[in-house]
């Protein structure tokens, strides 16, 4: 099967790639663009290491074909990171020791980005649900949850919002 061009917005900029239809989005951003922060942990949609944002929502990068991205807006961990330093979520994760080997971390960051985009002040149950599709073999999740709760707390203070019932 010959390669075909696919054009989409990647990390806020236009991108055009020549891909085989069988190539997944995760594979394509890694191989064609060297954006290797999107990791392949299982390639069958369970581990979440390949998480990317599609129009702001966390999805499996290994379960979407690159050709399907035509005209869509995709954000990878490289696009979700500030030019220097760490984002609010990344910073909280470092402060809470919410990573060890780092292989799941980009996916975790994006799963949480997606959560906070919809729910600025999530409770623990919301957080556990948001990362339930992202496997971590090192941390036991507890420090990741703690990091996210600290961001929620900060957001709550900033927004002056009431604590959610969750």
């Amino acid at each position: 099967m010959t390669a075909r061009n696919v054009s989409f917005t990647l990390n806020g900029k236009p991108a055009t790639l020549a891909v085989e239809p069988r190539q997944t989005l995760a594979d394509a951003v890694r191989q064609h663009l060297g954006l290797t922060g999107t990791h392949l942990g299982c390639e069958h949609g369970v581990c979440g290491a390949c998480t990317v944002l599609l129009d702001g929502d966390a999805i499996r990068g290994c379960l979407m074909l690159a050709v399907q991205a035509e005209g869509l807006s995709i954000t990878t961990i490289e696009g979700a990171s500030p030019p220097e330093g760490l984002s609010v979520i990344q910073d909280a994760m470092q402060r809470h020791h919410a990573l060890q080997c780092g292989f799941c971390s980009p996916g975790m960051v994006l799963a949480l980005e997606s959560l906070f985009a919809h729910t600025p002040c999530p409770g623990e149950d919301d957080i556990r649900e948001a990362i339930s599709g992202n496997l971590c073999r090192c941390t036991g999740y507890q420090p990741i949850v703690a990091a996210a709760l600290s961001v929620a707390e900060k957001n709550r203070a900033n927004l002056g919002a009431a604590a959610p019932s969750a």
């Binding site: 922060g37 990171s81 990344q90 994760m93 990573l99 780092g102 971390s105 980009p106």
Partner: peptide, 9 residues
Amino acid sequence: DKRFLRGEG
């Protein structure tokens, strides 16, 4: 952590 969190591992 910084490089891991930024996807730069």
